[in-house]
Structures are given as C-alpha cells and as structure tokens.
Simulated scan of single mutants.
Amino acid sequence: MTEPGAWMTKPLKPGRIAAYLGLVVLGFLVGTAGSLVQAAWFPVGLLLALLGVGGLFYGGLRATGTQLGVVAPAAGWIVAVLLLSAGRPEGDGLFAGGVGEIVFLLGGMVIAVICATMARLPQPGSHTGRLGT
C-alpha cells in the first residue's frame, strides 16, 4: 500500500494527467446537468443529481486509487455549480435560492469530503502490515 501523500511525490505520467483532466471535465458536466435536473424535477431530480455526484466522486476514487481522483471531478463540479449560481447583471440566474439548491450545493460538498476521506482498499499483492502474514 502506498504512503499517504505519495501521489504528490511521484512524477505524473501523460496517461494519468489525461485521466485527471477527463475527471475535471466530467465533474463540470455532472455539475451542469445536476444543476438543471435538481431544479426541474424537485425532489426526485435532487436525489438523482446527488446520486450522480456521488457516483462520479466514488468512481474517480476507485479508478485512480488516490484522493486526487475525487478532488479532480469535485473541482470541475464546484466550478460549474458556482458559475451557474452566479447571477447576471440583468438579474437572471439558474438557481432561485430555494432549499433544493442549498441541499445540492452542501450535499455535493459533503459527498466529496466523504469520498475523499474513505479508506482505500488494499492493492492486490500488497502486505497487510501484520507480523507473520
């Protein structure tokens, strides 16, 4: 099993960089779709949007095996949500400021933190750290 923070000291390969950039783009797309769905079909849309966010963040963790696999899509998600929640000078905005929007914003952030702090499964062939095994 790798040490905590080891992903910061290893050189990034082009494939890994492309995977993280792809996760950022997926996070942006899921954030945009979730913002539209949660407002359109409240409360089912809100649940669907949060399930999509959770699936993306957990999938990023499992696909990369690092917390950066959660941070990358979370960064894209938060950028999309913040851009869509900011009002325009004309007063137009996607979010009306109701309970659903707040639950979507806070729920997505909580899901990102939960996924980033989850225990990772040991890699195949790694030692358990117990004596005599």
Results as ranks from 00 to 15, higher is better:
Phe42Glu: 02
Thr133Ile: 11
Leu23Trp: 06
Ser35His: 01
Val110Lys: 11
Gly54Arg: 01
Val70Thr: 09
Leu83Glu: 03
Phe95Lys: 15
Phe42Val: 05
Thr32Leu: 01
Gly69Ile: 13
Ile78Trp: 04
Leu121Arg: 06
Val113Lys: 14
Val71Asp: 10
Ala112Gln: 11
Gly54Gln: 01
Gly93Met: 12
Leu50Pro: 04
Leu29Arg: 04
Gly55Ile: 07
Lys13Pro: 04
Phe42Lys: 01
Ala119Arg: 13
Arg130Asp: 05
Val30Trp: 02
Val37Ser: 00
Gly52Arg: 07
Gln67Trp: 07
Leu47Glu: 11
Gly27Gln: 14
Asp92Phe: 15
Leu56Met: 14
Trp77Thr: 15
Gly15Ala: 08
Leu48Tyr: 02
Pro124Ser: 11
Trp41Cys: 06
Leu48Pro: 05
Gly31His: 11
Leu36Trp: 07
Gly65Thr: 06
Leu48Asn: 04
Met109Ile: 14
Gly69Cys: 13
Thr64Asp: 04
Ile17Gln: 09
Gly129Met: 11
Gly69His: 13
Ala33Asp: 13
Trp41His: 10
Leu26Arg: 08
Val37Phe: 00
Ala119Asn: 07
Ala75Ile: 14
Leu23Lys: 05
Thr9Cys: 10
Arg120Met: 08
Leu36Glu: 01
Gly27Val: 09
Gly98Pro: 08
Met8Cys: 03
Pro43Gly: 04
Gly15Ser: 05
Gly52Met: 02
Val53Tyr: 14
Glu3Gln: 13
Gly55Leu: 12
Phe104Ser: 14
Leu105His: 06
Ala116Cys: 08
Ile78Ser: 08
Arg62Leu: 15
Val25Ala: 00
Thr66Asn: 12
Val30Met: 08
Gly129Ala: 09
Leu84Trp: 05
Arg62Val: 11
Gly54Asn: 02
Thr128Arg: 09
Leu46Asn: 03
Leu23Tyr: 03
Leu131Lys: 07
Ile114Pro: 13
Gly5Phe: 09
Pro122Ile: 00
Ile102Leu: 10
Gly22Asp: 07
Thr133Asn: 07
Ser85Ile: 05
Gln38Ala: 11
Trp77Gln: 15
Ala49Glu: 11
Ala96Gln: 09
Gly87Asn: 15
Leu29Gln: 09
Met1Ser: 03
Leu106Ser: 04
Leu94Ile: 08
Ser35Gln: 00
Thr9Gly: 15
Ala63Ile: 05
Ile102Asp: 09
Val103His: 01
